[in-house]
Design a protein around this nucleic acid. Structure first.
Lengths: 167, 167
DNA sequence: ACGAGTATGTTCAATCATGAACAAAAAGCA
DNA sequence: TGCTTTTTGTTCATGATTGAACATACTCGT
């Protein structure tokens, strides 16, 4: 085949994406995200919850009374994931699901006192670990990452939502 | 030294992490990563492979002859994941696993011609989608993200690996 | 050379996430 | 009002990922 490799990687044609800065930069993003999930997931274990649970609880704390569908969209997961996850959190007395008189399809989500207390502790851990991880960045650097990522997110969502007519 | 914002949500104590810039910025990173995985995963479907397969193939392309263990470490997954995944790729004739005379425990990984061809196509899609996603960033901005992320990764890995003596 | 300790890969059972199919309820429309 | 379409949530079967336990092979110190 074709592996006549001289000494140096590739003479002129960049055969591997690793030669492209944008590729390498994105790899770094993915790697950090993956590492973070591991680190934070372990940090949550003492509280008896895992990442998926935390994501749910924190979002209910931020948007009390949101529906399962809205929560799933925020978390970028399917509806069925919530249907499988939430009964467990309800059984443990961390959340409450109440119907909505105005729309009897939906079940709105609320934290119980116990759930709110647990979520507070989890969020404290979250913030602490996050700031620990980000000590190598200045405030301005961190903000610039956030600004750029939001720009990308807007672009990505715009391309996905509008349901392209053709193709 | 912190935002004394009267009219807004919380009078003085920032009860929710969303009030903290570092928190919001990280949320944006996680969101983009998640969106990217969805977009790219769908883009790979026509090739008949999924993200996990692609990660394997691309890394074998980059590091031909690496061991399963080394691959698992690069991908930040467990060894058993490779043991479940690789036989499928081998069965499809995309990769080859050859023993190593110097160390008869390991199985070194190589792309077949067919696997290399498929990987080339997948990497082309990868790069195209990536550049599409990143059109909203200048080269310098993209590089700055990469540089900062590598800084964070080094810090994270340093904290996890060396098995801190106390706590 | 021998044995304890370590590293690699596989198997297996358990866990988790997902999409398709479904029922109930709402919204749109004639 | 009646009918169709859309939305919300659940169930279920499937595929993905994992850690523990194991067998094999290597390393290192003696």
């Amino acid at each position: 085949m074709n592996k006549k490799q001289e000494p140096s990687p590739q003479p002129n044609k960049p055969r591997l994406p690793w030669d492209l800065p944008r590729f390498r930069n994105w790899i770094a993003v993915a790697r950090v995200h993956q590492l973070w999930k591991r680190v934070f997931g372990e940090a949550l274990l003492p509280l008896g919850i895992q990442l998926a649970h935390y994501d749910v609880l924190a979002n209910i704390a931020h948007y009390p009374g949101l529906t399962q569908q809205a929560l799933a969209e925020k978390l970028l997961v399917g509806r069925s994931t919530m249907s499988m996850l939430l009964p467990e959190l309800e059984r443990r007395g961390l959340i409450e699901r109440r119907g909505d008189d105005a729309d009897r399809r939906v079940r709105r989500l609320w934290l119980t006192d116990e759930g709110a207390a647990l979520t507070d502790r989890a969020m404290a851990i979250h913030v602490a670990r996050l700031e620990e991880m980000m000590t190598v960045l200045s405030d301005a650097e961190c903000d610039s990452i956030g600004e750029m990522m939001r720009r990308i997110a807007t672009s990505l969502e715009g391309r996905a939502e509008p349901a392209a007519p053709q193709e």
